[in-house]
Computed example of a mutant assay.
Amino acid sequence: MRENIPVIRLRNKSGDLVVRDGVILCFFMRRSHKEVAPAVWRALRTYLRAIPPQSLNWYGSDDGDWLPLDDKGWEVIRKQILERPWGAMWHVDLAEDPGEAGGYFFNYQGRQLEDPLFSRDEGATTAVSFTFPTEYLLEHGPAHLRALALELAGELPFSFGYASLAFVSHQGSWFSALELFDVLERYPGFDLPRLGDTSELIGTRARGAYWLTFLGQPLLGQLGCSEGVRQALSFPEVSLQPLEGERLLVSLGEWPEAIDTTKEHHLPQYLALANLLEPFLYEPRANSFCPDRDNLRRWIRHLTRSREL
């Protein structure tokens, strides 16, 4: 419910805003950059039409600087996605603000899976994410955001994707946020996006259970196809929408859930999807710091306790 979505503003020791509340749409594709580049460009154009003008104002250059996303900058981005023929990896970062955490980000991690760097790595994927401030969700409503997620998904040959409330920040800058782990513990329904790390490992597996969960192949087949998912998620709050290419959108409710652990919740559909996906979650590297997986485990434990009350 909209009234249960918290306002989160986290700052670093210097007082800079480095994490805020928002919504993320993220898709993982076990495809090479050259196969998906036109689709990613179309999805980016769809995202731009949906958000207010000048919501993206800066882009990350190859040397690490943030440069103005003016007409010249957009031509750089277009060429980087569509025309650059060389390299094993493609990174595109677009942001509302070059310093503090704004609500709008676009992040693309493209990989040439045929390259020797990745050819033996079954976990490497190409991935893309789109973020919004929570105010966008509240203004336009969840049906609008769900329709936009479907439009973006229709462009992309995903194996897994999701939409969720999220801690929105520049890539990796959440490390410097004061009180991050306190709010992460309190709101396990908030995603902590780590697109670069996750896209190196996820392959065709799942990342977790989310408000909107997009299931592609071969994952959907491993779950028993649409009918198997339907039987496991026979709750009135859940809707299933078959998509082209034997894919499926699972919606766990009208609104995304923050899941405030200081309050009681009855969300059996989240627990059921988390348990269904558990055998197919991607595995982080040994001894790696992986708060998103830890967050999922806390989520499942909390939901299990809530069910037993």
Rank of each mutant, 00 (worst) to 15 (best):
Q80P: 01
T125N: 04
F106I: 06
F167H: 11
P133G: 02
G73R: 03
R120Q: 14
H144I: 04
Q171T: 06
S119P: 01
D93I: 08
A163N: 13
A177C: 10
F130T: 00
L113P: 12
G64H: 02
W86S: 15
D182W: 00
T125R: 03
F130G: 00
L145E: 08
Y47Q: 00
P68E: 09
Q112T: 03
Y136F: 15
F132K: 02
A50L: 01
S119F: 00
P142W: 10
G64M: 03
G102I: 05
E155N: 05
E179P: 08
Q80T: 11
F106K: 12
E139P: 09
L150Q: 15
Q171V: 07
S164W: 09
S61M: 04
F190Q: 00
W174A: 15
D62K: 11
Q171N: 08
W74C: 11
Q112D: 09
R120D: 14
Y47I: 00
S169K: 03
W58M: 08
A95K: 08
L113C: 05
L156E: 10
I77T: 04
D97H: 13
L180H: 05
T134K: 07
S129H: 11
T46C: 15
W90L: 13
L150G: 14
S159I: 01
D62I: 02
S164Y: 07
P133T: 00
G172D: 13
W58S: 08
P68S: 10
Q112S: 07
T131S: 15
P85R: 04
T46D: 12
P142H: 10
Y187E: 03
A50Q: 01
L137I: 12
T126P: 11
G102V: 06
I51N: 04
A149L: 14
H91P: 09
A101H: 01
Y59E: 02
H91A: 12
R84I: 03
G161A: 05
H170T: 08
A149Q: 12
L69E: 09
L180A: 05
Y59I: 02
V168H: 01
Y136L: 14
L184T: 06
W86I: 10
G103H: 07
